[in-house]
Structures are given as structure tokens and as C-alpha cells.
Amino acid sequence: MLPFDALSKPGSLLLVTDELASPADFLLHQLLAAHVKGRSDANCIIVSVSGDWVRWKAVASRSGINMAQKLEDKSIAFLDVSLEPGLQTPLASTSLRYILQAIQTTVEAMREGNTLVIVDDLATLEWMGYSFLEVNRLSRALVSCCGKTNVALVIRHHVVVPEEPDAILRTLLQLCVHHLEVRPLSSGKSGAVSGEVALHTRNTLDSPVRQIPRSHAIQYRLTEYHAVYFERGTGSMVL
């Protein structure tokens, strides 16, 4: 129900925001699967701040993606930026330039084809002590770099106070072309509905992507390795 192929366009930023009660990991995995599966020239770089390679591998294997094999033939790269030595002693004055340089080097080293860069978390960098200015510079530099190299970029950002968007989110909202907003149900956790996804887009005239406002957000139910989407009010318990 969500146009994953049209969302991650080369040279543009797709912003994915989520909350603690409704993590957007399933969207990142589906974006990866939609980009890689069935395409021989598709590349993907996963930039992980959480360093959860095992989970990426386990979930992707259920989508028919052999991550180990893709790593070998260099169609997928996993950049664990949490293990960088600079991260061990973060100071407010420490530069995040090394993350950008690592991504640039990896993009150049990959084979020819359509490349997608997925940054699984940007908020944690600021929470750990990096200055807002550094994180802001990193996000702007990433968008600029991907625009120049014609690489699609997906950045996931955690929203901790939904009513008050933080400074990084405000910057990302200005930079992005599409914004997938994953929210929990206001009525709390449910076994039939895990949350809802709204899609905000800047291109309103000739864009193939249609906006999905919050009032008509698509609901989803998580299974162990996938997500099932349905229109609001058409869940299994309603029908």
C-alpha cells in the first residue's frame, strides 16, 4: 500500500520518523527489500549507529535476501559507525566528519548501479553528547553528498516528544522530499493494530507519490518478520 519504489528516489532524502511505541524498523527493512530484490544493479549501504548487524541479517533472510552473500559481492555494505574509535570518547567538540568520509568511501567502492543509503538512527548521536551543530552538519552533508552522487538517502529519526519537534527534526523536515511518519495508536497498544503510517510529501503537483495525511493514515500490524498494511477501520477485528 506504500509506494516504496517511488519513495526512495536517487538524489533525494526520505525521512522516516518513529516513536518508542512504534519503531520503524519494519519500514527500513521493507525499503531495503524493495530496493534490492529483483534488481541486479541495486546497491545498498546500511549505516548503523546501533550496530545491530545480526538483526538486520535475521530479518532480511526472511525476506529472501542473503545478506552474507550480498556483502561478498559488494551489493550491500554495512557500516557500523558505533564501533568507530571517535565514538568511544564523544565530546561536544568532536567532529562527525568521519561518518561522512566512511560513507563516501563506501559509495565509491561499490559496484555501478542504483545505490541506496540507509541511516538507521541520527538522534542517538546527539543524545550521546555530540553537539547539535555537528549532527546538523552531518545531515546536511549527507543530503548534499547523496545529491551529487545521485544516491537515494533514507534517514530514520526518533521522536521523543511528539508535540515538540527537536532542532534536528526541523532541519531534516526542510531537507527531505518525502516524510514517512510512524505513530502508535493514541488508544495504546493493541494486538490487531501495531500503529499507523502517514506520508507527507513536498511534491504535490506531478509527483506519483500521493500524500497520506494523518487523518487517513495506513494502519499496520507487525508479524515476526513482516508488516501487514490495511486501511483504517478495515482491521481483522473490525470486519
Partner: peptide, 24 residues
């Protein structure tokens, strides 16, 4: 190793598993 927490599926105390009487 999964998208869905095992607790959502198996926890009897939380009661949101598919196996419970009031699914949803």
C-alpha cells in the same frame, strides 16, 4: 532477531497476543 517482540505474541500477562480470547 525479529521485528515483533516475542512478548507481544507469547505474554499472557500483557494479553495482546493473537492466541488470547480478545484479539485486538
Amino acid at each position: 532477531h525479529t521485528l515483533l517482540s516475542p512478548s507481544d505474541k507469547f505474554s499472557a500477562l500483557r494479553g495482546i497476543s493473537a492466541a488470547s480470547a480478545s484479539t485486538g
